[in-house]
Design a binder for these strands. Structure first.
Length: 490
RNA sequence: CGGGGUGUAGCGUAGCCCGGUAUCGCGCUUGGUUUGGGACCAAGAGGUCGUAGGUUCGAAUCCUGCCACCCCGACCA
């Protein structure tokens, strides 16, 4: 098995190789589209389960809307169409026929669609067009719907998980009778995402609101969680939008309120995607491979037997099967890798590459002493444990590992969040270690654009509950009332 | 979509400048010895040299188009 490039020498090469060699995903025959392999997909499934549970707990139901959107729908909300027009895949025909030259098939020119269909880049338009029929009275509100789906955005430059032409996500779309309720919903879902990121992904995030430049096309406010990767670049891990009445107006979604007045409904939308896989990988993993938080690891504990004779293997198996049964009873996923085709050393390296949080090795010496060797993936610590205590120890250790991974990421984030007060300091910070850079900004899009042109850094967000503090914009020197967070980003 | 690079067995590569149908390692198969950090020995199998054309007696090698991937830019709610 090829060795990974070192993070310190070739970060993006490390990421690309890791995604492939850990069996998470690979490129497909279709440009920009990936194949998510079983091991990678099972991590995504765990994310889905956790998120889905949280969505249900906050009152949402799943539904499904079409992959195809009539072209005309997209043009109904002006800024929305502008945001997506350049990256839409378009269906123009509905039939193929045999090529006249006998070689393969061609698009049948007689089968042209009357109205072309867009492959959804996001579903606001088709959903709001549908909501129009669902809403008459305040009694029909709120509508709290989520869908798990694939979307297509025809990206020029793609990277596995981080930016692909097709990706998987969930998109929540809600409709409310009042502005306050919709705003509260958008903020609530941001909290759901932050809670998920921190407790399940072990990923500390910065909650904030986007500047107009970075806002979702069609939203009044875009909230986001931003995470910091090990190379000092930020990654937007989730967004939640307060849509105001923009889509209701575009699709004429009105309701009669208690006071018999007709009004447009208020909307939100929110989503996270398979991009979270990229965040997970880049936040925690090391030069030996993936480091998975136990809450998302498809295999939480792997047990590797070391033996010479069949009798030894039988004795080990008997012991291990007892442990396994007890651990599974506690909801822990355990793999006993008793394959005879690979050596123990090979297996050790393999499970490190795949990020399995705990490895237990047990051999003849352990049998004699009633012990086993436990190894942590996150700290690489190894220690001997009494065989009678292992079943009790594992769940505690999994919790400890989850926490250690989170704390490590948190201290990295804290150490790489810095305040700067001058343009020189700002440029130096961007050029050296990156990170979240807290700086004063005069509040104008022009300044934001110029800073981006000169340094590639963008405003990731204005933190929620931001401290109000008078200062001077690092670029223009104009007065500023608060600091915002700049970073290079994915 | 622009600039640069790469594409040779499942993976990683040599050969390309200077044309004569392909090197090495890992992996794979079989047999044997092994097994506490990616085991060893032996014998094997596996290649339209990304793809389509062109030049040539002859192309992995030279030329052109196309495709994919990587890096840089543009783009990225």
């Amino acid at each position: 098995m090829a060795k990974l490039p070192k993070r310190s020498e070739d970060y993006s090469g490390w990421y690309n190789e890791l995604v492939k060699s850990a069996d998470l995903a690979e490129n497909s025959a279709v440009r920009g589209c990936m194949v998510i392999k079983p091991y990678g997909y099972s991590i995504w499934e765990k994310m889905q389960q956790e998120l889905d549970r949280r969505f249900k707990e906050t009152g949402h139901s799943n539904a499904y809307f079409p992959l195809f959107i009539p072209k005309s729908y997209l043009s109904k909300e002006a800024s929305h169409v502008e945001g997506f027009a350049k990256e839409c895949a378009v269906v123009t025909h509905y039939r193929l026929k045999n090529s006249p030259d006998g070689k393969g098939v061609i698009v049948d020119p007689d089968a042209k669609l009357e109205e072309e269909l867009i492959v959804r880049p996001t579903s606001e338009t088709i959903i709001w067009n549908t909501y129009k029929n669902w809403v008459q009275s305040y009694r029909d509100l709120p509508i709290l719907v989520n869908q798990w789906a694939n979307v297509v955005r025809w990206e020029m430059r793609t990277r596995l998980f981080l930016r692909t032409a097709e990706f998987l996500w969930q998109e929540g779309h809600t409709a409310h009778a009042t502005q306050q309720e919709a705003e509260a919903e958008a903020q609530q879902m941001l909290e759901v995402y932050a809670d998920f990121a921190e407790n399940i992904m072990a990923l500390p995030v910065l909650k904030g609101v986007k500047t107009p430049n970075e806002r979702f096309a069609g939203a009044i406010d875009t909230y986001c969680i931003e995470a910091l990767m090990q190379d000092g670049k930020a990654l937007q891990a989730g967004t939640s939008h307060f849509l105001g009445q923009n889509f209701a107006k575009a699709f004429d979604v009105k309701f009669t309120a208690k006071d018999n007045k007709l009004d447009f409904v208020w909307g939100t939308s929110w989503g996270v995607s398979t991009r979270l896989m990229g965040a997970l990988i880049m936040a925690h993993s090391d030069d030996e491979g993936l480091v998975l938080p136990p809450n998302l690891a498809p295999i939480q504990v792997v047990i590797v037997p070391i033996y010479k004779t069949e009798e030894q293997l039988n004795a080990i198996s008997e012991k291990v099967n007892g442990w396994k049964k007890e651990l599974i009873k506690q909801g822990i996923s355990v793999k006993f890798d008793n394959r005879d085709t690979q050596s123990p050393g090979w297996k050790f390296a393999e499970y490190e590459l795949k990020g399995v949080p705990i490895r237990i090795a047990i051999g003849p010496r352990d049998l004699e002493n009633n012990t086993c060797e436990v190894a942590r993936r996150d700290t690489k610590e190894k220690f001997s444990v009494n065989g009678d205590e292992i079943v009790q120890l594992i769940p505690e250790l999994l919790k400890k590992i989850q926490d250690t991974i989170y704390q490590k990421a948190l201290s990295f984030k804290n150490q790489n969040t810095i305040e700067v007060n001058s343009w020189e300091e700002f440029k130096k910070a961007i050029d050296t270690k990156g990170g979240f850079i807290s700086a004063h900004w005069d509040g104008t899009s022009e300044t934001e654009e110029k800073i981006k042109e000169e340094t590639k850094a963008t405003i990731r967000c204005i933190p929620l509950n931001n401290k109000q503090e008078a200062g001077k914009c690092i670029f223009t020197g104009n007065p500023s009332k608060e600091r915002v967070i700049f970073a290079l980003n994915y």
